[in-house]
């Protein structure tokens, strides 16, 4: 092939352009650590990365949901534990209040039970952030309303929540609720914390009856009914404590699954998107050497011509 005056410069321009482009690309890869940045770099990998990152963000959100559930579960657990100790004290009193006690003593017990009821109502009306814990989805109002008589004795506690739990996702398509409803007399759905028709628990009414029996000195009724009833309530609290613990452990397991998935996704995205730094730098070096070689060799060739030898 005939080589003319412009063959060298033209080839040199082409070669240098191509080498500069390659250097630019490799330099970008080395600086960002990424093989892929824009869709044009590798459309198929870009698609996979976008999907993986979308999933990654979803997993992060599930982890945040789990945190929120855990927060709620811990808050509920603490309130239930408080009620369980109230229940324990009430049972103690029910055992202490036997026929050997005089009425003034029973009255003192009654006073303590009244206070226990008030504490229990306070615990049952606990809030987390701005929501009442035990009112079902009617979380904007105190679930339990207490009425007292002129003497300060509790005459009734009514439930104004509902029996619906708000469940939210902890994994794709898996919903859970760390909530407890205050009462459920329907015989189906979530079990009520204070009163439940299936377990026979009705903590406030049982305590009120106990308080009234103490006031009236009806020790026989305390022994025959109240003690057994309070036993039912305690079992119900134990059931809820157990359930709450189980939910917390399930949340922890789900959280660790999500963390593992997040790590796997990180590895997958890294495989698609990250540049192998060693490889990139070696290739960058090669390209730089080629660039210098092109410049030097071309410089020599372009410098010499027949003109150097003609006088």
């Amino acid at each position: 092939m005939r080589v003319t005056a412009n063959t060298f410069p033209n080839s040199l321009i082409t070669q240098l352009t191509s080498l500069t482009q390659r250097q630019n690309k490799l330099q970008n890869q080395a600086a960002t650590g990424q093989l892929i940045r824009s869709p044009e770099d590798d459309p198929v990998a870009m698609r996979r990365i976008l999907d993986l990152q979308a999933e990654g963000k979803q997993v992060s959100q599930y982890k945040r949901n789990i945190d929120r559930h855990q927060e709620l579960a811990v808050a509920s657990f603490n309130s239930i534990k408080a009620m369980k100790s109230i229940s324990d004290r009430a049972r103690e009193i029910s055992i202490s209040a036997d026929g050997l006690k005089a009425q003034p003593e029973l009255n003192l017990y009654a006073r303590e039970v009244t206070e226990l009821i008030k504490s229990a109502v306070q615990a049952a009306n606990s809030k987390n952030r701005s929501d009442y814990l035990f009112g079902g989805t009617l979380s904007d109002r105190p679930p339990f309303v207490m009425t007292t008589d002129a003497n300060g004795n509790v005459t009734g506690v009514t439930y104004q929540g509902n029996t619906t739990l708000s469940e939210s996702e902890i994994a794709s398509g898996v919903t859970l609720s760390a909530q407890n409803v205050g009462e459920n007399a329907s015989g189906s759905g979530p079990r009520g914390l204070i009163a439940d028709s299936r377990s026979g628990a009705d903590f406030f009414n049982h305590l009120i009856s106990f308080q009234n029996n103490l006031l009236s000195g009806n020790v026989a009724a305390i022994e025959s009914t109240d003690r057994a009833n309070l036993g039912l309530d305690e079992e119900n609290f134990l059931y809820h404590l157990g359930t709450s613990g189980a939910i917390q452990s399930r949340l922890e397991v789900t959280d660790s699954i999500a963390t593992r998935r997040s790590d796997t996704l990180e590895a997958l995205v890294s495989k698609e998107a990250d540049a192998d730094l060693a490889q990139t730098l070696v290739r960058l070096n090669q390209t730089q050497t080629a660039y210098q070689a092109a410049l030097q060799s071309a410089g020599k060739i372009l410098n010499s011509s027949l003109l150097d030898y003609i006088r």
Partner: peptide, 8 residues
């Protein structure tokens, strides 16, 4: 999702 965990 966040709203579903804290709807109020």
């Amino acid at each position: 999702q966040s709203l579903s965990t804290d709807p109020t």
